[in-house]
């Protein structure tokens, strides 16, 4: 697989590429070969179902080629589906993906160690989802 990087505005902060879920690993592997060796972040957000759109989640990866060229890969997946993990390509993605799983509830297929990283191990639910009640009390402290 090859991508013509000349179409990308690599210096702009907001340069975001929407990638189909099944192409993510291919695209990421190619970019890694092109010198994008610095994994900046992985973030995720949950969007509730509306009249026009079903319940879905956004996952975004930002990669950097030093000194200052960025590209962001964005995915839209149904929030119950799994997203392919990039932890095999960048080790830095390991904990970042665990954090997104912990707080937003996005599962990452192929992740080596998908456990909660911030909340207690027995925490019910994922608090940054839109359908999570903000005043949920956690036993026994609340």
């Amino acid at each position: 697989m090859s991508i013509d990087l000349s179409h990308f505005d690599l210096v702009a902060e907001n340069d975001i590429v929407v990638v189909p879920v099944d192409k993510l690993v291919d695209v990421a592997t190619y970019l890694r070969g092109q010198g994008f060796e610095y994994f900046v972040y992985c973030c995720a957000a949950h969007y509730p179902a509306s009249e026009s759109e079903p319940d879905r989640a956004l996952v975004e990866y930002r990669l950097r080629r030093l000194p200052a060229e960025d590209v962001a890969l964005r995915l839209w997946i149904p929030s119950s589906d799994a997203c392919p993990s990039l932890a095999g390509l960048w080790q830095a993605a390991d904990w970042q993906e665990r954090e997104q799983f912990d707080l937003v509830g996005v599962r990452f297929a192929g992740h080596p160690d998908l456990r909660r990283i911030m909340l207690p191990e027995d925490w019910p639910g994922h608090p940054l989802r839109r359908d999570y009640a903000i005043d949920t009390r956690h036993f026994p402290w609340r």
Partner: peptide
């Protein structure tokens, strides 16, 4: 809250400066 969420840029996409 719902409007605020849905008003976010849903497509992302490739934007030139």
């Amino acid at each position: 809250q719902l409007d605020a969420v849905l008003g976010l840029d849903p497509g992302g996409g490739l934007r030139r400066p």
